[in-house]
Design a protein around this nucleic acid. Sequence first.
DNA 1: TTGTTTATAAACCAATTGGTTGACTAAAAA
DNA 2: TTTTTAGTCAACCAATTGGTTTATAAACAA
Lengths: 120, 120
Amino acid sequence: MDSDSDDQLDRAFLALADPVRRRIIARLSRGPATVNELAEPFEMSKQAVSKHIQVLEQAYLVTRSREAQRRPVHLDPARLEALTAWIDRYRLVREGQFRSLDAVLNHQAVHGGRQEKDQS
Amino acid sequence: MDSDSDDQLDRAFLALADPVRRRIIARLSRGPATVNELAEPFEMSKQAVSKHIQVLEQAYLVTRSREAQRRPVHLDPARLEALTAWIDRYRLVREGQFRSLDAVLNHQAVHGGRQEKDQS
DNA sequence: TTGTTTATAAACCAATTGGTTGACTAAAAA
DNA sequence: TTTTTAGTCAACCAATTGGTTTATAAACAA
């Protein structure tokens, strides 16, 4: 369960760690598109773009429908929320906590203080 | 320049696409820590954790100071902001845009409508 | 000086990633 | 029916990732 959500975060962040896939998302934010349409701006084979779409799909960042022989891809913005939710847990670290921590660190090092377990 | 920021986004998202590195960030959100301290909860060599920290460092998600023979690692929350900034551009896609797009898509497909270039 | 602690570097390995090409399926059009 | 369009599958390849072990460096302690 924890490793499940871990795995979903893995896939989602990994999916965004590629400029091609980010451009695909940017395109899809303006509406759905077919594989051929998505592939057109890129100097790479349609198969390669198809693979990128599969990566996005397995990360649940996009979904697909049926439309004759076309398989329109559309963005699922809900998944992006999950990513910002994770990030938001850590990005608001206070200035106060950030200043003069090495003093605190020294204290911990000297006294060997070990704390509670971290989460995901 | 565009490819620079692309590269920075690549590294940052890639850095977060690993549960070990996310746990390191969670730990660092409570204050800086040494490599040994960060490595302690994991069943893996200190060297492996050191590599993970380097990945985070090259993504500018963490920085390091000097403290005798210790190299305390601390979180740089500013970088996390850059990631949410990117995501926020696309996560607010409206319901209205999302509904009945395949109709629009059909129109585009028939008329071969090709639009402006996507950004990063 | 010698030894201990903290951390990195280098060499290596298995698994994954991102791309290619060629063959194939399915739906629609002629 | 045959042909075209849209897309996936499979095999392959080079480069990268995530881990290991061994060796090394740098700062402190005795």
